[in-house]
Design a protein around this nucleic acid. Structure first.
Lengths: 205, 205, 205, 205
DNA sequence: AATGAATGAGCCTTCATTCAT
DNA sequence: GATGAATGAAGGCTCATTCAT
């Protein structure tokens, strides 16, 4: 699926990149605080460091800002994950990948929350694009699991690979969504340990 | 925690109950369709079958409606779960409880989605109350797991009981949140089977 | 052609009529002064005597106001003309009809100017409706001319009836459009006399 | 009345002329399409073939563009009329002048429409200048009529000369303003014939 | 208890104009 | 002379809430 396009009246492509990063960075803060709907475009402009007029040189609608935010979060997550990809096919490699993912979520906990709570407000085309991004993440884990299977280190039915990958993602999101309950009882390290144990165990029946 | 109170100018307690049910039932439909913020109070009144003036005789703010909705969803879920509680302490009992819960979620999938996506818009006091409701559900599963443990049918550390309960809840919500991906590949029956297997297996190390 | 409909959230049909008259009356004043585009909806509301919110209970868009204005002007003109229709078929009757029409234009000169200068801003459906109203006026004069012809008091080709009617209308509008030039040199009475003479003479070849 | 002056930061008088012609030519197109108020300065610049910054080197306000447009239309009309002036003093000469004028209007029908619908938006000083241009056209016809009168070919009172000239102009504009009605029933040729007949007849009482 | 007209703060967006490069 | 990014005042419109009937 091609990238969802956000129209801009500005020609300098580099400047567009720079300004949109400012927008995105500012907007996340606000969305975390007050949610998408309670944040005004003026606040976004101010937080980004320029006037409302300038904001609208780089986006066409408020929803574009939400898309920019979601896109940049996904990109950062994928980048961080790619950075740490060990590319081996042992159980230990899977374990590490999971731990990395959980740590990324821990760092970007607020961003995750925003993305999952607000993405429903995206116009449908943009929403579809964002969902493909989510699927890409699922596929990253599917690949890792697949590699383990093929190397004989994991014994699960091939139809369960996808579910297992979703499972891992959701388990990670749980650390973001339910932190109000979990952080009372767990440190990140302990959470990672217990959850990976359980996930791996579930995959080795 | 005491129930969050919604002020009304009407005295007749019974009428209040009836009207609020109408409001809640109508509002869920609309929230499912368009989300909380995109739904207007006028639409809510219309869907409930009376005028905007009357709506405001039974609530004080729009957020009250959201609270009413969340509250009624939780109540319905808890009712349905309680109905099916076998109260035994075997693994089979746990398995059945999980299946029940998943089936309830399947039926109320839209409602769950609304609740988890919109509850952040509740005023903090109401939010806290709703979270206690969520915790009650966690506790229901904690109790079941505990009973299994005490009967010797499960061997997990006591500190992990709470996490396991959260785990079950999240696994269920996953069926609601990620249906865009999961329903392509799984039927509810198969999903229940695979997930309960994995959960139980995770608890029997 | 059915009347172009303007949506309202208010139910009381009588109140709608009353409010729309207020709107129309206030708006004409402003449009005469500053034109449609330079007049703000806030100003319209204020001039009509209520708040911006109330204004929008009776219209859906700013263009609706323009339509209301055009419609009410046409209605008033047609009413005034009908009032004075002698319904006879002599040249004298035609002469009187023309004089009446010119006098109406003289009284509603500003309104005419507004209508002809701004109606292009109407959405196409409303524009079409307004044009049919204009055609109705043309037809009123066509009928009068026809009657004179049939009574043998006028001798023009039947294909020229329509043009003659347009001619009369335009001659009247001229008194509104070019008053900056004409009122320096003519009184209404003299203008009526000279123009009707010429029109009638043109019809008697 | 001296020409209304439009300030420019550019010195090269020739370049100014060239650019302003570009502006005017582009703007008419847009004004015909969307009217003055709905056309943006950016669109004007683009249509003219340069940047918004450059546009503002040759004008000071958006209204200047409207003035440029009106001025250029009048100049073109006057040029075309002068070109065809037979300068004789017969009825036939008058007839020809009228036909010429109607043909010019037919060719520049859109431009006429724009001018008469939008000139009200000119700042008052520019408006006054444009009105003098209109008066010049009136005077051209007054002169022709006068010459006919003095040559004994026309017998109308001297106070009616001006009115007759206005009459001719308005009759021509009618072909532009009411084309939605007239072009269904008339060709230009027939319209010219019928109208000149009537006008001339009206002048020969 | 029910109704629905009235209110106005506040939102998103546009666009004429400027000015540094 | 030309460019185009930046500005912010201002505009159209919505909607939660109130209150007289």
């Amino acid at each position: 699926m091609p990238k969802h396009e956000v129209k801009s009246t500005v020609k300098d492509e580099e400047l567009i990149q720079k300004r949109r990063e400012q927008i995105s960075r500012g907007a996340v803060k606000l969305f975390i605080d007050k949610g998408f709907h309670r944040t005004t475009t003026r606040e976004i402009a101010k937080e980004a460091g320029f006037s409302i007029g300038t904001l609208y040189e780089y986006i066409r609608t408020k929803e574009d800002v939400l898309y920019l935010v979601c896109d940049s979060i996904y990109n950062e997550v994928n980048m961080r994950l790619a950075e740490l990809d060990t590319n081996d096919n042992t159980i230990e490699g899977l374990r590490l990948a999971i731990a990395n993912y959980f740590e990324v979520i821990n760092v970007m906990s607020d961003e995750f929350l925003v993305m999952y709570q607000e993405s429903k407000s995206l116009p449908s085309e943009a929403l579809r694009y964002v969902l493909t991004k989510e699927l890409e993440m699922v596929q990253q884990f599917e690949t890792i699991i697949q590699r383990c299977m093929e190397a004989g280190n994991l014994r699960i039915g091939p139809e369960e690979v996808s579910l297992a990958a979703h499972h891992i993602l959701v388990q990670g999101q749980m650390w973001s969504f339910r932190r109000w309950a979990l952080r009372r009882e767990y440190t990140l390290e302990r959470y990672i340990q217990v959850q990976t144990d359980q996930i791996i165990q579930g995959l080795e029946k």
